[in-house]
Design a protein around this nucleic acid. Structure first.
Lengths: 343, 343
DNA sequence: TTGTAAGCGTTATCAC
DNA sequence: GTGATAACGCTTACAA
């Protein structure tokens, strides 16, 4: 029932030549004459030969494979990043081993170990919210496996490659926009500030407030996670204290959704009663009511840069050049934060 | 700079024992005494040993790896399926090789070949809209690699495993619900009918119409793809003909979004002027205005069944039992299709 | 309980 | 141009 897989030597035997010749021919090695190559290739398809990548990699000491670790995949931001990573890999004849940490640092660590064990040629990782033990990354570094961090990066003092969004600039841009609209009472529902994206966005918020000489009301600057529940809870908290700002910068798209939900529950209208803008774009935002304005992140650029850096580092086996690239954001104005809604 | 990787024999040498003993100890083989095992394990971590999975798999003739091919990943439906597949794999110490066909049959084929070459123990695939050449699947079958199709399945006459949504029943349920509300002018914006999910949903629509003795107005039954653009275009087409039904069953969530967009452009209100329900659930639907009712697909159940079947088939190396499992749907009623809105 | 020998399928090296 | 030989790192008999 189960056919034994055809191997190089099966083909060789059939043709009465050596496996080496077959191996070379199949890889278009110049050693082998065109006609032998032709002959061998035909036989290979005829016999239904499939190379054994395990064996190939073991022997060749390279896997043509890139490992990826992301916290989530059923999430617009990571979903689009992952998808473009796959596209780029495909174009370049690389395979991707994707792993999902589900925001668990322990799981992340295990996945990284597996990737190492699989002898991937390079690694792309976006760390979890809770990652604080960086020893595994140092180990990867020591092993000489190129690694690039995207979006969420660790705070290490060894040098490493990274590709991030201009979080600080993006937040600044959004807040500046709100200020120019006329808003003064501005709040920020932020993420954990122990992770770069949370902290940078918070800084961008402060930058803008400071530059325009506005006072920051600490009560309106709330820390939390990047999920819906935080937007929801924080909004209700301020509402119950009867202390809401006029406009909120939400650290993520889900947080903004949480705000939509809470606002609708308590009968407040967006943007009339409270205005809103958030980080991160998903196509569905244009379908919200009102359509949600946001700070757009160019996910495909992140993937592109990350893969570029990896390919470059894989080529030059000698010391890498450590690179830090920053991807610009732009404001997409839809139905929120488009005019000043207060008296 | 680049440390040479530690191997089994490095550990063996250090300890003056054989590699076999080390190999066994590391895998908790009962052969080895607890204290030697302990000793070896300590040395392994001390030396920073990482197993070489390539070598292991080559030798063990099994990869503990499952290959997955999906048409898309930045898509709520597939994103959640993929995520749960990863979770289940992780629980069971399996690795996943995910590939994304991007709805290209050619790419799908290449990916399948790669998976075969990687010697995956099993394969899960959701075919593209255009897949019509099934020879690769027959080849996989012949190779004895367990394969299970999910959601989108091929029309082959060889037997194969599959896990699908009860598309027909789901569509029936939704249309029946609309009918009971009082609707009679019911339309269906469907997908390609050459693919099972498109066809089955269409059939479910017809089933309900027939069972309740309603006439189908062919002008309201439109075929297209599963993307936003089809909902948008089809809606505008009917609108320009001044020939809209009272309620539409959209074949997918994106198609429904397209309808929202078109309706809002021409100033028609949902659900007052035209009502709507769609296949597929995404959390964001509850944030739409009005919140969109839908036929919910239990994605995690699909993954669970698919993995179950695979594990079962991997165990029993002798002939498989071919299984076809159907996952139930349920109606999630939110702000559309909750009452009859016509005079 | 431990070790020996053989082999998994491929590729690199160096003769012929 | 072609091929013998030795890896690659591990596991599975089977022997000691």
């Amino acid at each position: 029932m189960k056919e034994k897989a055809v191997t190089l030597s099966d083909i060789a035997q059939k043709l009465n030549i050596s496996t080496v010749t077959v191996s070379k021919a199949l890889r278009n090695h110049p050693d082998i004459s065109p006609k032998t190559t032709k002959l061998i290739k035909n036989m290979a398809v005829e016999m239904g030969y499939t190379p054994n990548i395990m064996a190939r990699n073991l022997s060749a000491r390279r896997s043509n494979t890139i490992g990826v670790v992301v916290p989530k995949v059923a999430h617009h931001f990571f979903g689009t990043i992952v998808e473009s990573v796959y596209d780029i890999a495909f174009e370049n004849n690389y395979e991707i081993i994707l792993t999902v940490s589900q925001e668990s640092a322990e799981r992340e660590r295990k996945h990284l170990q597996t990737l190492l064990a699989m002898k991937v040629d390079g690694i792309i990782v976006s760390i979890t919210q809770e990652t604080s033990d960086y020893s595994i990354f140092e180990m990867i570094e020591r092993r000489g496996v190129p690694i690039v961090f995207i979006d969420r990066i660790p705070e290490m003092n060894i040098s490493y490659n990274s590709v991030v969004i201009d979080d600080r600039g993006g937040a600044f841009k959004a807040v500046e926009h709100a200020i120019k609209l006329g808003y003064k009472k501005i709040g920020h529902f932020g993420g954990f500030s122990k992770i770069n994206i949370g902290r940078e966005r918070l800084l961008g918020f402060y930058d803008a407030m400071k530059q325009y000489g506005l006072e920051v009301n600490k009560a309106w600057v709330l820390e939390g996670g990047f999920g819906e529940e935080y937007g929801y809870e924080n909004f209700l908290k301020l509402y119950s204290q009867n202390n809401l700002p006029d406009v909120i910068l939400a650290v993520s798209y889900p947080v903004a959704l949480g705000i939509y939900m809470a606002a609708s529950e308590v009968g407040m209208r967006i943007p009339e009663d409270i205005d809103l803008i958030c980080f991160g774009s998903a196509d569905v935002q244009k379908f919200l009511s009102p359509p949600l304005s946001c700070i757009n992140q160019h996910t495909e650029m992140i993937s592109r840069h990350a893969m570029d850096i990896l390919f470059e580092n894989i080529e030059r086996k000698d010391g890498f050049v450590c690179q830090k690239r920053v991807v610009d954001t732009d404001l997409i104005l839809r139905g929120t934060c488009i005019r000043y809604n207060r008296q």
